[in-house]
């Protein structure tokens, strides 16, 4: 499986964020998108996720599921955790598992992996920022998707959480997945850098 972008141009609010951007990632790759604030790291991820429409260029996925579009094969982990405080931890996770569909593994195991099995029935409102992030990670584990698009994934995670997350990424790569992460801190895993927006 190979994900590539050619000559991508992104315009937001009348301002050209980047233009003529090329990138390439294959199964087992981690691409760390780096650049100063406002250079368009998040925009690039949202372009791949189909949440923004490119002003130019194209994005191609070779060797994925032919019956599914690129966004349907992606997990997008944005700044916001897509959690409802009124629902319990288990309800939040099972909703996304039901809604996103596709191949999945046990919600209970995912919660145990991210260290939230003690809080399954508690409202998500009681979780700390780091725990909410862990719950979002559980979503990535419960529903299998080959492409992970991660926006500052280690935000709010403590050291143990970052180690855990490193392990989860390695597992994902070992299964043949690929990861594109926007970050300005170390990911804790060997990654190829994609620098956008010139030098900081």
């Amino acid at each position: 499986m190979r994900l590539s972008g050619q000559g991508l141009t992104c315009v937001r609010g009348g301002r050209e964020v980047f233009s003529g951007l090329d990138f390439e990632a294959a199964s087992g790759d981690v691409v760390a998108v780096v650049g100063r604030n406002g250079s368009g790291k998040t925009s690039l991820l949202r372009l791949i996720a189909g949440l923004l429409i490119p002003a130019g260029g194209r994005i191609v996925l070779d060797g994925g599921d032919a019956e599914m579009t690129l966004p349907e094969q992606c997990h997008y982990l944005g700044h916001r955790d897509a959690l409802k405080p009124a629902l319990s931890v288990a309800e939040n996770l099972s909703f996304w598992a039901d809604f996103l569909g596709g191949e999945r593994c046990g919600a209970a195991e995912s919660l145990a992996t991210v260290g939230l099995d003690h809080a399954t029935d508690l409202p998500a409102a009681f979780l700390s920022a780091g725990q909410r992030r862990r719950l979002s990670l559980a979503r990535l584990l419960t529903v299998r998707r080959p492409v992970w698009l991660l926006d500052e994934p280690t935000n709010a995670l403590d050291v143990a959480g970052q180690d855990l997350f490193g392990g989860l990424m390695r597992d994902h790569l070992a299964r043949g997945g690929l990861i594109i992460a926007a970050t300005h801190t170390a990911l804790g895993i060997a990654a190829r850098e994609l620098r956008i927006g010139g030098m900081a």
């Binding site: 099995d117 809080a119 700390s128």
Partner: peptide, 10 residues
């Protein structure tokens, strides 16, 4: 109590 339970990992 629930909030305490949420904050500490068993």
């Amino acid at each position: 109590l629930q909030m305490m339970q949420a904050s500490q990992k068993a």
